[in-house]
Amino acid sequence: MTRAGAGAWTEPGAFPIAPGIHRLPLPLRDDGLKGVNVYAIEDGDGVALIDGGWAIPEAFDVLAASLNSIGYRPADITRTFVTHAHIDHYTLAVWLRTEYGTPVAVGRGERDSLTWIAGHGPRHRLQAAQLIEAGAPHLAEFMSRDDAAADPVAECWELPDVWLGEGEVKVGQRTLRVLETPGHTQGHIVLYLGEEELMFTGDQILPHITPSIGFEAVPQQQPLVSFLDSLGRVRQLPDARLLPAHGPADGRVHARIDELVEHHRRRLEQTRSAAARLTSSTAAEVAEQLPWTRHERAFAELDPFNQTLAVTETRAHLAFLVHQGELAASADDVVLYAVP
């Protein structure tokens, strides 16, 4: 299938973006996002991928069928550029390397998290410690149980062949500009094709949802500061078509950045107000006061994994407000926030 976008954005196939560039939606397992967009760019010898997908058989089968529809096979993938080291982006790239020798490149800022996971340390140990500090020991226990059930080797957590920094990479006759955009993760990158006004934004800029902030094996100290700074840097570039990792590829980068900045401005106001009402509170207690998702669901309605994301994100907003001097934080084992 090579139609430009009939049906839902997760419908499998190879959807043309520009001559020699296709969007290949791949399925996810037990994930509310339902799918991840992998982009194939013809490079003369085969195709380079932007993002790899999740290392599950159904994703590989869809990738193979989608490539076949445009005349390629998985063995024709020359390399994979991964926007960040989350399981739904990174691990199928490692699987492809195991099967075909396909090199894997990822942002250099992912070194700490990938070294931790590839060393077979419990993937969420540092996040669990952060959740205890945030006043959510039950969620820390949930994450620890998830670690106990996981096998880093089977999940394809290995180090990449190339650590990418700011600069340019050639893909056939095209030149991709690599931009380091920490925030969603420390090593997140976006890739920009200026002449064609295309930007592959990974999870940093998504069309309909706001990406999680700072959910990674080795957490950042100020992920929201990094995220907003990254959005500001990208906003200074000429506008481009938004090619996200999740969602339809029919938006524009500048408009969506403006919406994300406004969302976080409002969220910071809500977070500060909640902290002020509670007088002295943990990040978990503040998270319980806030609405979640586009449907403004109550915290208690979220499943444990999404409660974990909610507490982590609330902690990032509280840390930002402390950084700005609008809140004060205690230095105890469980951190309390209050208006100074």
Rank of each mutant, 00 (worst) to 15 (best):
E262R: 00
G172T: 09
G101K: 07
D332W: 03
R272P: 02
L206K: 03
V335H: 14
A331D: 13
A319E: 15
E99A: 02
P238C: 03
P211T: 03
R252D: 06
A59Q: 12
L206V: 05
Q324M: 10
T80S: 04
P219A: 12
V190M: 14
D203C: 06
H317N: 09
L206Q: 13
E133K: 02
N306T: 12
L139G: 11
D76Q: 05
A18I: 14
R272M: 13
E180N: 12
C156P: 03
V218K: 07
Y90N: 01
E155K: 11
H89G: 08
G35W: 01
H120C: 15
T2L: 04
P304R: 12
V104P: 00
A8I: 02
L268Y: 01
A129I: 10
L49Y: 04
T210E: 10
L114T: 08
E197A: 12
E326P: 01
A338E: 14
R177W: 05
D88T: 10
P304E: 13
T102G: 09
E166R: 13
R315P: 01
T80H: 02
P248V: 10
A240P: 01
Y337H: 06
L159I: 03
Y39S: 02
R174V: 04
V171N: 03
L231R: 00
E180A: 11
P223W: 00
R297C: 04
V225I: 09
R29H: 07
H254E: 09
P211F: 04
P340A: 07
Q307W: 13
F320I: 07
G44K: 04
H22F: 15
